[in-house]
Amino acid sequence: MDPLPLTSIRPVFRAAAVAFVPALEPASPAIWEAVERTIAAALAGRPPGVTRQLALFLRMLDLAARLRHGRSLAGLDLLARVRLLERFERSPILLVRRGIWGLRTLVFMGYYTQEPVIAGLGYRASAAGWSARR
């Protein structure tokens, strides 16, 4: 079963996700699957309209890339993609800013909650607290 309910626009989603978290570019299929499963679980707890809005927003980002650069979002190099998304992040339209914020938050949730990623950051909090450090 496809973990992410955005199959038709997965390339756009992954292109945006890599712009938010460049470490996803070389990520293994297992990491991608874990990230997408986490996001899917978060979306499953929300009204169905949220997923539809997300899909629509991703299509809008892809269209903007095609209109502005003549290439799909996934076809842009990383720097151009980041710059384009930053423009939307600073958009005068609140709805567009919210869209970027929501999308990046989902990607961060998917990536920065994975145990290997957390361990890689050096984050070591545990119930053992001080006794594990001294």
Binding site: A19, F20, V21, P22, A23, V82, L85, E86, E89, R104, T105, F108, M109, Y111, Y112, T113, V117, I118, L121, G122, Y123, A125
Partner: peptide, 25 residues
Amino acid sequence: YFPFVTAKNLTGFGPDHARMMEAFP
């Protein structure tokens, strides 16, 4: 805060954001 909450609270995204997260310790 924890890694995800920290990532969410930092402004922006991309390479600069990632560098700040990599400095977590």
